[in-house]
């Protein structure tokens, strides 16, 4: 039963990371496109990219921490 808990928590963490991976990937890809189109604005694009990626990553980390909470409280 405990193994199932841990397994589900790990799965949840994995799913959260999967979503964040797709999100951050898209952000990075779009930023690359934008920089290729407007190399002179690369500084601003990078800052915006990092902020957006950090926000997405934050949500994923919420998921991971929730999963960790699940593991540690069983």
């Amino acid at each position: 039963m405990e193994l199932l808990h841990v397994g589900l928590a790990a799965l949840g963490a994995g799913l959260a990371v999967l979503g964040a991976g797709v999100g951050v990937g898209k952000i990075g890809g779009s930023a690359m496109d934008a920089i290729a189109r407007q190399p002179e604005a690369s500084g601003k694009i990078q800052t915006a990219m990092i902020i957006a990626a950090a926000l997405v990553e934050g949500v994923a980390l919420f998921g991971v921490v929730a999963a960790l909470l699940g593991v540690l409280t069983t």
Partner: peptide, 10 residues
């Protein structure tokens, strides 16, 4: 909260 979780978790 997102700030603190992000730093801690990373």
């Amino acid at each position: 909260i997102a700030l603190m979780i992000r730093l801690f978790a990373n």
